[in-house]
Computed example of a mutant assay.
Amino acid sequence: MPLYFLLKACLAELVLELGILVHSVIIGVSLGASLRPSTIRPLVGALSFHQFFEGIGLGGCIVQANFKAKATVIMATFFSLTAPVGIALGIAISSSYSKHSSTALVVEGVFNSAAAGILIYMSLVDLLAADFNNPKLQTNTKLQLAVYLALFLGAGMMSLLAIWA
């Protein structure tokens, strides 16, 4: 029976890792496909900030899953390479059209919305759902209030950051 739970936890971690890798590639493509300095500067800042905290979150999940050192190094390496690979892909894609064309806006919009959608899905389904279904949280009203307050405060602060993006 413990092997089943171990495999289930490892599979959940691998799905989370895969989702974050795909998200990082898409956000890298979005940055690479951006051709105007007015969109590149905020994206570089947001991407740096975002990748840092996403890496911390992913690292915490990897540590909790108790993977062996080799698997941990492989996962960290893939995470480190995804955004640069995505940026290179975005630059290659953007070289095929004019930066002043409507195609440029459509490509940027599609990649930005895909990256945002994947991030929202991963955060709500793979990260927050497990925490909110924890029996400790379910039985403690004060802890629930604190967690929901922190969630809404964090979402509000991220929305506030969008003013400068």
Rank of each mutant, 00 (worst) to 15 (best):
V110F: 00
L81D: 03
L11Q: 06
I56Q: 05
V29F: 01
F53S: 06
I91H: 03
S95K: 11
E108F: 12
S159H: 06
S113N: 12
Q64W: 08
I27P: 04
T77H: 00
S102Y: 09
F53N: 08
G59Y: 03
A150S: 15
A162Q: 07
L149P: 02
A33L: 02
C61V: 12
T72L: 05
A155D: 03
G45T: 02
Y4L: 11
P135K: 03
G57E: 07
I74W: 04
A83L: 13
Q64E: 12
G90F: 00
A92W: 08
K70L: 08
S113W: 14
V107W: 00
V107N: 01
V73K: 07
L124R: 12
A9D: 08
S34F: 01
A65C: 09
S159C: 09
G109N: 04
Y4Q: 13
I120C: 12
L7R: 11
A146N: 14
C10S: 06
L145T: 15
A69K: 10
A146H: 14
N133K: 14
F49W: 08
S48N: 14
G59D: 02
I87M: 06
I91G: 00
D126C: 11
G59S: 07
A116E: 05
P2E: 11
L3E: 14
T39C: 01
S98L: 14
S159G: 15
F52H: 08
P135W: 00
S24R: 02
S24M: 02
L143Q: 13
S96P: 05
V73C: 06
L14I: 09
